[in-house]
């Protein structure tokens, strides 16, 4: 098996474990069934990836950016459209859906905290399943176009590369129509770590 295929295999395993853990944590947080589906684990050209997001209209979202630092640095992004962030706030606060009517500091921090908790769950997968020491940094929250959020997310990696390895997941929360997206992007030395993980499989 080529190195590239091995890394892809490792990435898919990490993605699956991360998503399983994230689903458990998410369901616990919102006291509702939640399913996270793996949409993409692939190498994608930066132009192609951003063209797709830009072409999908000017959706307004709230995104939480977190850097997972440690032995295998990753960048994490969780985003949801503004209207759904209000529903998410009600779910987290265990209120009747519809009570949060404006995008306020609580709605913004609902996304912040979702990002924080999900990225921490993923870093926990690295440490417990692969003995790779990782920790999340405090989240940065941005309220902007989905395309701006995504391009800024990949910016630091895309400066040096034309292709990025990316894991994309889609959330579906039972009893609501909330759609959220989560991305994990290995940075720098991570690919060596992924090769190491692949070699142990």
């Amino acid at each position: 098996m080529t190195d590239r295929l091995k890394v892809d295999k490792a990435l898919k395993l990490i993605a699956k474990l991360s998503i399983d853990k994230s689903s458990q944590v998410l369901s616990k947080m919102i006291k509702s069934g939640a399913r996270i589906d793996l949409e993409n684990v692939c190498v994608v050209d930066i132009t192609e990836a951003t063209e797709k997001v830009i072409g999908q209209s000017d959706q307004e979202v709230v995104g939480a950016f977190i850097d997972l630092v440690g032995d295998a640095p990753f960048k994490f992004l969780f985003y949801v459209n503004v209207a759904d962030s209000l529903v998410l706030t009600d779910l987290i606060l265990k209120r009747e859906i519809g009570m949060t009517k404006i995008f306020d500091v609580y709605a913004q921090s609902a996304v912040q905290e979702m990002g924080n908790i999900l990225s921490s769950a993923i870093s926990n997968v690295f440490s417990s399943d692969f003995q790779i020491s990782m920790a999340p940094t405090p989240p940065t929250v941005i309220n902007d176009y989905a395309s701006t959020v995504f391009t800024e997310y990949i910016m630091s990696v895309a400066v040096d590369k034309n292709e990025i390895l990316i894991i994309e997941s889609v959330f579906n929360i039972v009893a609501t129509n909330i759609g959220c997206r989560m991305f994990i992007l290995p940075v720098g030395e991570s690919e060596k770590i992924l090769s190491y993980v692949a070699s142990t499989m």
Binding site: I46, T47, E48, A49, T50, E51, K52, V53, I54, G55, D58, D144, Y145, S147, T148, T151, E152, I154, M155, A158, N162
Partner: peptide, 24 residues
């Protein structure tokens, strides 16, 4: 016509060329 990051597109009337920017 949509333009992604690190790309450029050219065309003629009556087309419209669109992109989305942050620090770019």
């Amino acid at each position: 016509i949509i333009v992604g990051m690190a790309d450029l597109k050219v065309s003629k009337a009556p087309d419209i060329i669109t992109t989305s920017l942050g620090s770019c």
